[in-house]
Simulated scan of single mutants.
Amino acid sequence: MCSPQDFGMSAGGVRMVTRSRISGLRARPRGGREEAAPLRKGEASAEEEKSHHPVKRQRKAQSLNVAYEASDGEKGEGTKQLKAPSWEPQDWRQQLANIRTMRSGKDAPVDQLGVEHCYDPSAPPEVRRYQVLLSLMLSSQTKDQVTAGAMQRLRARGLTVDSILQTDDSTLGTLIYPVGFWRSKVKYIKQTSAILKQRYGGDIPASVAELLTLPGVGPKMAHLAMAVAWGTVSGIAVDTHVHRISNRLKWTKKVTKSPEETRIALEEWLPRDLWSEINGLLVGFGQQTCLPVHPRCQACLNQALCPAAQGL
């Protein structure tokens, strides 16, 4: 998830001007840290160039809808061939609208116990961000109900970087049990907390690249941390629910084998303004209707539009 560029004259004298939008990450210096805004949910300018070369006859400017170009591979011809519009799945807009309708009640576990509900809203901003990251680390291979319970026990003892570093491994394990892989998570939480204290003054990094260097933090956690903790949409957060449903609906050009592969495939075609809602929307849909085993296709508004439902 390329700044606006102006393409110059081609060999054949054809000028093509394209515009694009960019919404990038703001890299934060590791030294002096500026105060970040509390948790809340750029358009670069493009310039047009005008040719000043004299020509015998002025061509009428053409309006281009495609922002991609590719060489035809023949030198001397000088013309450029426009690539075909990028691939997108059939019926995806109607499928998405149906999922929104089915999720309008906001009554899935993720809606009540997801990461947005696990931190202490009265804590200082850096503590809230740390709690967001910790809840994400605990949530891997764990149901929302179990993660929320572990976070409540941790917060009851004062959940900060310092309090975790002062808690022995045995006690920490007791507090987070029975989250999935709790023994490994005790180690990752301790290691990550030490790094945050040493390098970030107890706060969490404000970029995906830095978040991914932390022990126990994967792409889904990093993108969700950016969205919830920093209010920045850096990419689509893909977990097992999003991965499964995207393949069932054929929202990927080919079958993907991992959540990260699915994220890359989705970001190639899904409009960026929809990235922020996909995780919560599909996770809840996967918890209630599009279940891993025995999906409730009879109750799904997409039954007639879902390729997977046709084979059941």
Rank of each mutant, 00 (worst) to 15 (best):
V293A: 13
D107M: 04
R244H: 07
V132L: 07
D239W: 04
H294Q: 14
Q145K: 12
A206Y: 06
Y200L: 01
R59H: 02
R128I: 03
D107C: 04
K143S: 08
A225D: 02
R26G: 01
Q310A: 14
L270S: 06
V66Y: 03
E77A: 10
L212N: 13
E43F: 06
G284R: 14
V132Y: 10
Q152P: 02
D120N: 15
K254Q: 13
G149A: 12
P205E: 04
K190L: 03
K75I: 05
R272S: 05
K190R: 15
G284D: 13
A148G: 04
A222I: 01
R153Q: 13
Q94P: 03
P125V: 15
D239S: 02
T101M: 10
S45A: 10
P125T: 15
A299C: 12
M226A: 03
P292M: 08
F7M: 13
E49D: 04
E69C: 08
Y200C: 02
D111S: 06
E88G: 07
R296M: 06
G201Q: 06
V238F: 08
P125M: 08
R19S: 12
K187R: 15
L281A: 12
A194Q: 14
G78V: 08
A225W: 00
V217E: 11
S246F: 05
R100L: 07
P295V: 06
G32D: 00
G180V: 05
P4I: 12
G105N: 11
K56R: 15
W182I: 01
S104R: 14
N65S: 09
I195A: 09
L82M: 09
V217S: 08
A209M: 00
E267P: 01
T256S: 05
P121I: 05
K253W: 00
K253C: 02
G201H: 01
A194K: 12
R33V: 00
G173W: 02
I99W: 07
K253H: 06
V127T: 15
A148Y: 14
I204G: 09
H241N: 06
G12S: 15
T174R: 15
E126G: 00
E126V: 01
E268G: 08
R157E: 14
Y177S: 13
K254A: 06
R129C: 03
E88S: 14
P219E: 08
L312V: 07
D162A: 14
D162V: 04
A97V: 01
Q166S: 11
K50L: 06
A67W: 00
A97C: 05
M9C: 15
L172Q: 12
G231N: 14
S139D: 06
H53C: 09
L312P: 04
S258D: 13
R128M: 04
